[in-house]
C-alpha cells in the first residue's frame, strides 16, 4: 500500500497528531520516573515539579482530541486511517490517566516526606515504577513501528507488575499489623503501589490499541489478571 495519501494535507494532519502523542508519551514517562525518584529520595521539590508538569500532559490530551475530531470532520478517515484516529484518542486518554497517577504519587510523596520512614528507599516501589515506565516506552515504540507482536509481549508483561503489586500489598499489610503507627504511611504507600499497578493496565490498553491499529482485530479477551488482592483476606496472627 502506498504510504501517502493523494491529499498530502491529510498526511500532515495525521503526522501532527502522532507527533503530539509521542510528545505526550515522553512527558508521561518522565513523570513516572521523577515521581518514583521523588518518593525514593523524599525529594519534595521534585515531587512539586511532577505535580506542576501534569498540566502540560492534560493540555496535550485536549489538543490531540481536538485534532482527531477535526480529522474526522474534514477528512472522513476510513480503514487504517480511521483506526489510527480512534486509537490516538484512546491512547491520549490512557496517557492522561497515567499522568494523573504520577501526579498523585508526587502528592503522596509530599505527605510521606513529613512522616517517619516506613519502607526505607521504597526500592520495590521504584522497581515497579521502573518496569511500568519501560513497558510504556516499549508500547510507544511498538506504536511507532506498528509492531503488533511486540505489543502482545507488552500485554503479557503486565502480569509481572500485578505480581509486584501483590507482594507489596502483603508487605504493607504486615507493616500495619506490626505497628498501628505505620498505618497512615502504609495506606499512602499502598495507594501508590495500586496506582502504579493501574498505570500498567493503561499501558496494556495502549498496547491493545497498537494491535487493533495494525491488525484491525482486538487482542484476545483473556488478559493477564494477576492482581488477586481484591479477594484476599487478613488472617489473624
Amino acid at each position: 500500500m502506498p504510504d501517502q495519501h493523494i491529499q498530502s494535507a491529510f498526511d500532515r494532519d495525521l503526522e501532527d497528531i502522532q507527533a503530539n502523542i509521542m510528545k505526550m508519551g515522553g512527558l508521561v514517562e518522565e513523570a513516572i520516573r521523577q515521581g518514583a525518584l521523588s518518593l525514593a529520595t523524599r525529594d519534595e521539590d521534585l515531587a512539586e515539579t511532577v505535580r506542576r508538569g501534569d498540566e502540560a500532559i492534560d493540555t496535550l490530551e485536549d489538543l490531540i482530541n481536538e485534532d482527531a475530531a477535526r480529522v474526522i470532520a474534514l477528512r472522513a478517515p476510513t480503514a487504517v486511517d480511521l483506526r489510527l484516529v480512534l486509537s490516538v484518542m484512546k491512547i491520549s486518554g490512557n496517557l492522561e490517566r497515567i499522568g494523573d497517577y504520577a501526579k498523585n504519587m508526587a502528592k503522596r510523596t509530599t505527605v510521606l516526606a513529613q512522616m517517619r520512614p516506613v519502607d526505607e528507599n521504597a526500592i520495590a516501589l521504584k522497581r515497579m515504577a521502573r518496569e511500568v515506565e519501560l513497558m510504556l516506552k516499549d508500547a510507544l515504540d511498538a506504536y511507532v513501528q506498528r509492531d503488533a507482536d511486540f505489543a502482545e509481549d507488552i500485554i503479557e508483561r503486565d502480569r509481572e507488575v500485578d505480581q509486584m503489586y501483590n507482594a507489596l500489598f502483603r508487605e504493607y499489610l504486615t507493616f500495619m499489623m506490626e505497628d498501628p503507627r505505620n498505618i497512615t504511611a502504609c495506606m499512602h504507600l499502598h495507594f501508590i503501589a495500586k496506582n502504579i499497578e493501574r498505570m500498567g493496565d493503561h499501558v496494556t490498553s495502549i498496547a491493545e490499541q497498537v494491535v487493533y491499529l495494525v491488525t484491525g482485530e482486538r487482542p484476545d479477551e483473556n488478559r493477564p489478571k494477576a492482581d488477586r488482592t481484591s479477594t484476599e483476606r487478613v488472617r489473624k496472627i
Partner: peptide
C-alpha cells in the same frame, strides 16, 4: 485486501 485499503483511504485514485 491492501488494494481496497489503498483506495478507500485515498492513497490511490
Amino acid at each position: 485486501d491492501p488494494r481496497t485499503e489503498s483506495y478507500i483511504t485515498g492513497r490511490i485514485g
